[in-house]
Design a protein around this nucleic acid. Sequence first.
DNA 1: CTAGTTATGTGGGATATGCAACGGAAAGGA
DNA 2: TCCTTTCCGTTGCATATCCCACATAACTAG
Lengths: 217, 217
Amino acid sequence: MLSEQELEKSPLFQNINYRDYQEILSCFQAVQRVFRSDELIYDFSTDAVGVVERGQASLIRIDEDGVSTVLEDLGTGGVFGKSLAFAGSTGDSLEVICRHPCTVVFIDYTHIFSLCGNACQRHSIVVQNMLKLVANKAQALSRRVDVLSRRSIREKLLCYFRQLSQQAENRTFTLPFSLSTLADYIATDRSAMMRELKRLREEGVVRSDGRQFTLRL
Amino acid sequence: MLSEQELEKSPLFQNINYRDYQEILSCFQAVQRVFRSDELIYDFSTDAVGVVERGQASLIRIDEDGVSTVLEDLGTGGVFGKSLAFAGSTGDSLEVICRHPCTVVFIDYTHIFSLCGNACQRHSIVVQNMLKLVANKAQALSRRVDVLSRRSIREKLLCYFRQLSQQAENRTFTLPFSLSTLADYIATDRSAMMRELKRLREEGVVRSDGRQFTLRL
DNA sequence: CTAGTTATGTGGGATATGCAACGGAAAGGA
DNA sequence: TCCTTTCCGTTGCATATCCCACATAACTAG
């Protein structure tokens, strides 16, 4: 259960007053839970849709050889669920893991994606909020595809750097994670990526200090 | 303007009666247009959201060297727009191109993503429909990320084949496009992909005849 | 039917990328 | 504080992948 202040900042329950919020929770059979770091949040075995209200989580894929890959980064407003992510290929499993302590709301997906008998107005506001969240998710996934569809490590790096630079509205920006994770994010070998990064630095295309980078175009 | 029969099948205007539909068109300032093959549908210069009502289109990226890559395949129910796809990195441009004759509805995004003053019920049905479409888009993008995040051509192919097999609910399935385009789809060199395919065939992992494949697990 | 265009197969040689391994720096926990 | 774990930076070597080139088949338009 959220406090009144938290409610205002809630991605899913924005623009809803406190009393309506309480009714919605029961009407939607919504469940709210708190998770600690490294806890398993969701394993794609149910039809629930989850919304990260606060904290940070990752959607990871574990293939048959046990290799795990981060498919999505879920911050505040992040959404996940069977109906939103492809149920991975047979053999590998999907999981949502807590990175930083999280508050997550679970809602049965039929309550969101189907028409509500008593077409209440609160309902439609929740749907509207959900639409925004899913649109953001689509945008984030598009960015990821943009990067991954490049043909070489160099191009992948530059593409991702440009995205970060654009988001920061600055030539200088900070990586949201470690260099090791970056290699995973662009789906390449870490050492090969380091080599390419070195080359980019030597050629003067980028400057870098730790996780802080500057594009010199 | 859609006919009454078309309206029932419309992804965006489903579950809306004909009179409401007409009102919505004007209330939302929606525009409907028909396109021929190879015509440019959208160039991401406006804030409009487009929905493919009928036909088939592709979202392609053209980088600074003129290399074009298919980022998304948009069939009936496909949605696109600035607010849904990342506005490509500086240097390359994004376009939606008509593949098979299309009917497309354009709606200004504020009418969908913002609260409507006169919270009409029709409005909320359109939003609900849109939510489903965007959720499908997110799912499609997830599938793409699933494929592209694999480390080798072999793994990419197998991952994609498993997806198609799963969709077809059958070990045998047909590629939705040419082998050349497949190479583009998995972001690798065509000849390298052909070589790997040959190997997969020789090892008995897949059988193939033209665009028809069978997974032999 | 023909000529032009695109798709399919295949291969040789260059090279970018992956893999394994190492040492030191930094960070986090007890 | 020490101790453990993760992260960073770098290399040699094997090879998967890219690039270029060619020949045939399949398709399209006139």
